[in-house]
Amino acid sequence: MERPKYKRVVLKLSGEALAGEAGFGIEHSILTDIAAQVKEVVDIGVQVTIVVGGGNIWRGVSGSAKGMDRATADYMGMLATVINALALQDALEAEGLQVRVQSAIEMKAVAEPYIRRRAIRHLEKGRVVIFAAGTGNPYFSTDTAAALRAAEIEAEVILMAKRVDGVYDSDPKSNPEAKKYHHLTYIDILNQGLGVMDATAASLCMDNDIPIIVFDLTRNGNILKAITGHDIGTFIGGEQVNGKGS
């Protein structure tokens, strides 16, 4: 059995990742695959939290662009993340895991309110904690929520699960010559606008020295590989390689 490099992690899932090829809604097979991968890492003693987006159901920015009040559109997006969190909870419990959903917007019938000390206690008891409703505030993304929760619970790494195997200098789907970065600094992300996460989230990670691993969620076993230190995807941290990201 491999030993984990990280003991407490934040797994960041986009809503789109749950939709699969359809691009909207929730694909059940993806839920079950994620749940099986999370169980693998919980079984080796890793404390796992999950922050999930809601873009497969609603995107606040899109609503705002069409004339909707931005705060209202963002609150709708937060509710979409709760739907995804409950779906993930069900899939994880089907794998035999104990799971708690904590929402930044109070809704006692379906989730606990977010309380930092309670979240940490759940982790210490071996439960998976899903953080829903972002930060609870409009104008902030779920990437920022992931960075904030990681800092609050003292997570050792943020695992950015994508549908691509790392960070590239351009879109590898449209540019076959796109260059993949194996190592980047926070400053690289901010200065080059590489789209890994928004500037607020990247700055929070930099200020709190929280490393980020961007990897391909669609490859089975990659969550375990990332946590056990395998060289997959792109590592983002404070140190530079040869004076720049590479």
Rank of each mutant, 00 (worst) to 15 (best):
I30L: 13
G60C: 01
A133F: 03
A104P: 06
G67T: 05
P113Y: 01
E2M: 13
V157H: 07
Y114L: 11
E124G: 11
M78G: 00
K244L: 11
Y139S: 00
R118P: 05
N220K: 07
R118A: 04
T234S: 11
I120R: 05
Q192S: 10
L194D: 07
A17C: 13
T72A: 15
K5R: 14
A146D: 11
S170Y: 12
V99E: 05
E239R: 03
A199C: 06
A109I: 02
E124D: 13
I153S: 04
R127F: 07
E95T: 04
E21Q: 12
N222W: 09
S14E: 05
L204F: 11
V38P: 05
A94I: 02
G221L: 05
G126W: 09
I44V: 14
V10T: 03
A133L: 04
M1P: 15
E2K: 13
D165H: 09
D165Q: 12
A22Q: 14
A65F: 05
A226S: 10
V196D: 03
R219G: 08
S141V: 02
G221F: 06
G55H: 14
F215Q: 02
I57C: 03
L159N: 09
M197G: 10
S64Y: 10
R100H: 13
L88Q: 11
I30G: 06
I115K: 01
Q240G: 09
K108D: 00
A145D: 03
A80F: 07
G20E: 05
T144R: 04
V9R: 01
T144Y: 13
K162V: 12
P211Y: 01
A132K: 00
L123N: 13
D74E: 09
K173N: 15
V52S: 05
D69I: 12
M68E: 07
K173P: 00
M76C: 13
R149Q: 04
E95A: 00
I223R: 10
E124R: 11
A155P: 09
I212R: 09
D169H: 07
I115A: 01
N56Y: 04
G15L: 01
A119M: 12
L11T: 07
A85S: 15
R127I: 03
E177L: 15
A73N: 03
T49F: 03
